[in-house]
Structures are given as C-alpha cells and as structure tokens.
Amino acid sequence: MSTESPLPGYRETRLIDPFEIFIGPIFESGAKGERRFALRIDERHVNRRGSLHGGMLMTFADATLGAAAADLADGGVAVTLNMQSHFLAPAHAGDVVEVAPTLTRRTRSMLFIRGDFTVGGETIMTAASIWKVLGRT
C-alpha cells in the first residue's frame, strides 16, 4: 500500500461503502452539490501493463457521480440504474484523475449525471449515468 498525501486544494472524501474504502482514498474540493473529486492512481489500480484498469475507473465514476447524486437526492438514497463509459486514453500510476460531475437532468425520481474524467487537463474517459432516488422524505 502506498502512502497517500492529500492533493493541494483537496480534502479526503468521507467514504462509507466498504468497496470504496478498499480502493480509496478519494479526495474532493468544493461545497456539497458542487464537489469535484480526485484520485491518485497507485499500483492497486493498474492492470498487468501498468495502465489504469477500466474497472477501477468505472468504480471511481460510480463513487463520484454517486456522491453527486447523493448531494442532489434531498435526503433520499440514489441507486445506479445505468452507466455508460467511453474510454478515450490511458492513464498510469502516479497520475491524478479529476472529475467535476454535472447534473444533466432531474425528474421526480431520477437524476441524469455525467462526468469528464481528466488527467492533466486531457479527458481520458467520459461517463453518463442514471440514478433512481429512493425513499425521499
């Protein structure tokens, strides 16, 4: 396990899902509802060729777009209905992946949220997701 130092301008995100804690830490900046997120890629996150694993990137997408959905869910729980990912370029250990999730559309029970995942300003992956909001009080 590598030692993680907080990224400049970011604080560590409080994670509660065991799988996210397992692959984390994840860092964030900004206020609730406008959070942007960052992940420093380490040797746990890469494939046998040393490139960031697509599964890891989709897990980061699920965690961060889901965190944005939770911010927008008004106390309800948001569960993933669908996620579409396009992989544009590779990334490697030591790189920092950043995303600022954006709300595309909100209906009474669904949230459409997308994100461009960048390394040093280059988009390496885009994800578009749909979330069902359960149990809003």
Partner: peptide, 11 residues
C-alpha cells in the same frame, strides 16, 4: 458495489 459488478463485467 456497482463498481465491482462493472469491473467484473469488464474483466
């Protein structure tokens, strides 16, 4: 976790 299910499908 959805990330694990997507990772498994990807592999």
């Amino acid at each position: 976790h959805g990330g694990m299910l997507m990772s498994f499908a990807d592999v």
